[in-house]
Every structure is written in structure tokens, then in C-alpha cells.
Design a protein around this nucleic acid. Structure first.
Length: 215
DNA sequence: CGGCCGATCCACT
DNA sequence: GTGGATCGGCCGA
């Protein structure tokens, strides 16, 4: 029996690196009329406010990143590559613009619905393997921007990690460079994942694409 | 399973 | 105008 308790605003108000590592193993749940899908997080990335060259807030506030400057525990979603949504959880004090990108997880509830939303998945572990795949499996998109993920009455909620059974030790947390972040921000090892999890996304170095449209 | 590469459109310069 | 905090189709191993 899971506790089903949401994480608190205080959990997210801490420094972003602490939040990022502690988020591993917690569960993101989205309830809709179609049903419920829940994902246990296995991979995240930290983005550290305006001082972080890899962050969407690096150049200061804009309409798109406004939510990042707001209250901890709220949802920042952005649209990228013309077709994908990615989901972040805002961290730190109001005004700081730190956030954690949810990169991958294991579907622990609603695998049937998740498969309908992700028909191209070649195996269950691919359902939420990657940041845009995770949001698709959950049914999260731009409508969830600014939502409070600590609200127990909300449809989109982050829940405490399920209680560990027996004496199984806590999973090891690994870290490495962030995926798809180029330039100065590439050096910081602010991608975190749980060792041995098959849902952790494959590492791809940041690449700059040239003239993909041949006109 | 993994490498290659085009898709597609929005935010910002 | 430029280039993404990405993914899927296709193909080969």
C-alpha cells in the first residue's frame, strides 16, 4: 500500500542539486478521464538559475521561462523541436529560476494507457525513456504549465518514493554531463540517474545541426 | 540495440 | 533568420 503522499513545497524550495538527487525514485502521477499513468523517476537534470549557461533562464526572464522564477514545486513545460513537450519542476526560492528536468522513468501504473499514448515504444522500458517520451506517456503538455505539483487535489502530482521492501539498500545515484547541452554548460555533471535502471535514457552528446532542411 | 538524419515550429536575437 | 534540455523511421548487426 503506497502512502500516496505528495512532496511538499518545502522539498522543492531547497537547492536544486539536492532536489534533483532526491527526486530519483519519486513518482509523478497524472490522473485524467482516460485513466491514470504514474512514472517512477530514474533520470533527471538540474538547471541552476540565471548563472547556468545551459538553462532557459540564462538570458534572464522571458514570457516562456516566467514559471521558472515562480514558486517551487510548480510545473515548467516547454515546447521544443517543433513537436515535443518537456517537463520541469521549479526549485529554490521565488525569483531564482532553478528547475529539474524530468528525463526518464519507469511506468508503474497505467502501462496500458501509456502504451496507447506511446505506440512506437519497442518495449515497456521505452514508454518513458526520454524527456519528451515521459511527458507523452503521462499525457502532459502545455496545458500543465504553471500547475502546482504539490497540490494533493491536483491532477498532476509528485508523490513520495514508495516504501522500500525488506532490507533492500537504496539505489545508487550516478551523475554525468547533461544531455543536449552544448557550450560552457556541458561540463557540469548535473545529470543524475539511478544505477542499473533500464529506463535511463541513452547518453547523447550535444550536437549542432546544420542545414537539415535542404530548402 | 544502435547509428544516421529529417521533421517541425516556436522563442528569442 | 537561427537553432533547439528530441524523437522516430529506416536500416544494419
Amino acid at each position: 500500500m503506497t502512502a500516496d503522499r505528495p512532496l511538499t513545497p518545502a522539498f522543492f524550495a531547497r537547492p536544486v542539486l539536492a532536489v534533483a538527487t532526491d527526486l530519483l525514485g519519486t513518482v509523478v502521477r497524472h490522473r485524467t478521464e482516460e485513466g491514470t499513468v504514474a512514472v517512477r523517476l530514474t533520470e533527471v537534470e538540474a538547471y541552476d538559475g540565471e548563472s547556468d549557461p545551459g538553462s532557459h533562464a540564462f538570458r534572464g526572464p522571458t514570457p516562456r521561462n516566467a514559471v521558472m522564477y515562480g514558486r517551487a514545486g510548480h510545473v515548467y513545460v516547454y515546447f521544443t523541436y517543433g513537436m515535443h513537450w518537456c517537463m520541469n519542476l521549479v526549485c529554490g526560492p521565488v525569483g531564482e529560476a532553478s528547475a529539474v528536468l524530468l528525463r526518464a522513468g519507469e511506468v508503474v501504473e497505467g502501462a496500458g494507457l501509456a502504451t496507447l499514448r506511446r505506440p512506437t515504444a519497442r518495449s515497456p522500458r521505452e514508454l518513458a525513456r526520454g524527456p519528451a517520451r515521459l511527458t507523452t506517456a503521462l499525457g502532459v503538455d502545455g496545458r500543465h504549465g504553471g500547475a502546482d505539483a504539490t497540490d494533493p487535489a491536483g491532477s498532476l502530482t509528485v508523490l513520495r518514493a514508495p516504501a522500500r521492501r525488506g532490507t533492500r539498500p537504496a539505489a545508487e545515484v550516478c551523475s554525468g554531463p547533461r544531455v543536449g547541452v552544448a557550450g560552457a554548460g556541458a561540463a557540469t555533471p548535473w545529470r543524475f540517474w539511478l544505477a542499473g535502471e533500464p529506463s535511463v535514457s541513452a547518453y547523447r552528446a550535444a550536437v549542432s545541426r546544420r542545414r537539415t532542411t535542404g530548402r
